[in-house]
Amino acid sequence: MQRVNMIMAESPGLITICLLGYLLSAECTVFLDHENANKILNRPKRYNSGKLEEFVQGNLERECMEEKCSFEEAREVFENTERTTEFWKQYVDGDQCESNPCLNGGSCKDDINSYECWCPFGFEGKNCELDVTCNIKNGRCEQFCKNSADNKVVCSCTEGYRLAENQKSCEPAVPFPCGRVSVSQTSKLTRAETVFPDVDYVNSTEAETILDNITQSTQSFNDFTRVVGGEDAKPGQFPWQVVLNGKVDAFCGGSIVNEKWIVTAAHCVETGVKITVVAGEHNIEETEHTEQKRNVIRIIPHHNYNAAINKYNHDIALLELDEPLVLNSYVTPICIADKEYTNIFLKFGSGYVSGWGRVFHKGRSALVLQYLRVPLVDRATCLRSTKFTIYNNMFCAGFHEGGRDSCQGDSGGPHVTEVEGTSFLTGIISWGEECAMKGKYGIYTKVSRYVNWIKEKTKLT
């Protein structure tokens, strides 16, 4: 034993070699072989497995989906700052455009905790909710729209109204504003409101030439003092309507412009014939205590009207009353817009006519005020429907199939267009061939041609 100890002390290297040989010859039971080890760690190889990531292109799944990435790591994937920024906006807080917040056709661009709407022409605001041009839906104005110097929408209202708090709607500024039905039992019968379409306001006024200088022999019209197929109006439903009495009662109609003036057809009036105007009328054979009678003290036909040349060209006249009318729910003026808007309103496509005229061709006159909704007829169809001249200051309205029309005794009465609950004068009943005849239409004086003249002559002093 002493000898062994001496050998170990003198030859430590020998001992180490012996131990190493023993270990190498022993069977290893701690580690699995290569094949079995792979069965336990069965993990798919990654895209760049075996390579240094710093030297390969980034992978979106590896960089940002398996674990949260930084902007720089995302930049490695896209290799483009702009594309990385677009991805980053949604990656950080989701897609803010998912709810489609942009209105009126706006395009949404996502941002971090926010979004941006790219608005089409005519709109602005956070969600493109603000109209900035009158060309689109009248700028959301209830009545009139004008573009300011910086191309912003400025709404306005006709006389007797003021802008509401929203700067879009119009509200009454006087007790009985024009064009409004205020009798409670008839307010439910107000005709369907007309909503502004998209309009090209630059070209809204037709490029028409008034044929002022045409000389033409007097034409022989049949029954051209021209509501057939209409309905009984309720008291106060058309408070701007008046009836004219002269040699015979209810020979023509008219509309209240203001307390002192009536507008009617020029062919209705004769110099030297006494005319009485009755406002607030409903049943011409009954006294309903809503009527107001006034005498006409002055007749002003349009300066281009000449019955000797043509009885229905420039067929418009103004009547001055001896005493002002007292405005109330049964006696209310009709609204008159400017030339541009009167023309736009007419193009809405349908209007209402009213009167006490004959209820059928050569038949009896109506006792109760009649009204009828009539569609506008395109000019080409209008011209083809008659052998008589249709001037540019006239328009056609009615039904091709016949059966409904204005008729004798309705002449001078109103053709009105309702705009968001307020009625505007767009025409004056003038003439036609018979009444409600198939293929024939009622012919009306186009008020847009005469609004400046009306307003100039009827100013209240």
Rank of each mutant, 00 (worst) to 15 (best):
T417N: 11
R83S: 14
C170G: 01
S329R: 14
N213S: 08
T342G: 07
A380Q: 09
I336Q: 01
C119K: 03
R298V: 02
G427T: 00
N283L: 11
T342W: 01
V56H: 13
C178I: 00
E35I: 04
H314I: 01
I309E: 12
I7M: 09
E72P: 15
P12I: 13
P333S: 05
C396Q: 02
P197G: 08
Y352E: 02
K188I: 12
T84A: 09
E129P: 05
I454E: 00
E124K: 03
G21P: 03
D232I: 09
C157F: 00
V296R: 00
V227E: 07
I256Q: 01
A250W: 06
N59S: 05
S365L: 03
E208G: 02
R46E: 15
G272Y: 05
P101E: 08
T84Q: 13
F388H: 14
V181W: 06
G439N: 08
C268R: 00
F238Q: 04
N245Q: 11
L327R: 04
A436Q: 15
T16D: 02
V278N: 03
E82S: 15
L32W: 09
D232P: 12
A265H: 01
Q185Y: 09
S430H: 07
L130C: 11
G412T: 12
C155Q: 00
V368P: 09
K260Q: 04
T458G: 02
T84V: 06
A397C: 03
G442F: 11
P197K: 12
Y450I: 00
E67I: 04
G442L: 14
G432Q: 03
V263H: 01
I334Q: 01
S114L: 13
H302C: 02
C97N: 03
A307E: 06
L41P: 15
L327S: 03
Y341M: 15
S448R: 02
G412N: 06
E159P: 04
Q216T: 08
A164K: 05
D198R: 09
P414A: 14
Y371D: 04
T158A: 08
V174M: 08
V419A: 07
S49R: 08
N304R: 12
V368D: 09
L372S: 08
D378K: 12
F388E: 14
E129M: 08
E259H: 06
Q143R: 00
A192S: 11
E270R: 09
L52F: 15
N147F: 07
S49G: 13
K446R: 07
E10L: 07
M394R: 04
K347W: 05
S169C: 05
E231G: 09
E418G: 07
R46H: 02
G363K: 14
N104P: 03
T225N: 12
D150F: 05
T218R: 03
A192Q: 07
L346Y: 12
L372C: 14
E340L: 08
L189C: 13
E98D: 06
G160C: 01
K446V: 02
Q143F: 02
E66S: 11
R3F: 09
N135R: 10
F144T: 00
E76K: 12
E10N: 11
V243N: 04
N222M: 10
L460E: 08
G363P: 11
H314Y: 07
K247F: 05
A9F: 13
R373C: 04
S354I: 15
A192P: 03
D315R: 00
H282A: 11
C157I: 00
V4C: 08
I297H: 05
Q219D: 04
C18T: 03
P333H: 01
P101N: 15
D212Y: 08
A164M: 09
I297C: 04
S411Y: 10
Y444I: 13
I299T: 13
E401I: 14
P414H: 15
V30D: 15
N5A: 09
E35W: 04
L103C: 15
V243F: 09
S411A: 08
N48Y: 09
L130A: 06
Y201L: 04
N151K: 08
G94H: 09
L130W: 04
V242F: 00
G13C: 09
F395N: 00
T290K: 05
V202C: 15
N166W: 01
N147M: 10
N38M: 06
D111Y: 13
S217F: 12
K126S: 12
Y341G: 05
F176W: 08
T218P: 11
E116W: 12
S70W: 04
F87Y: 15
T332V: 14
G421W: 03
D95N: 09
E66W: 03
G13Q: 08
A436E: 15
G409Y: 13
E124D: 14
P235E: 08
N310P: 03
P375L: 11
W88S: 15
A307G: 12
P197Y: 09
D232T: 13
K457A: 11
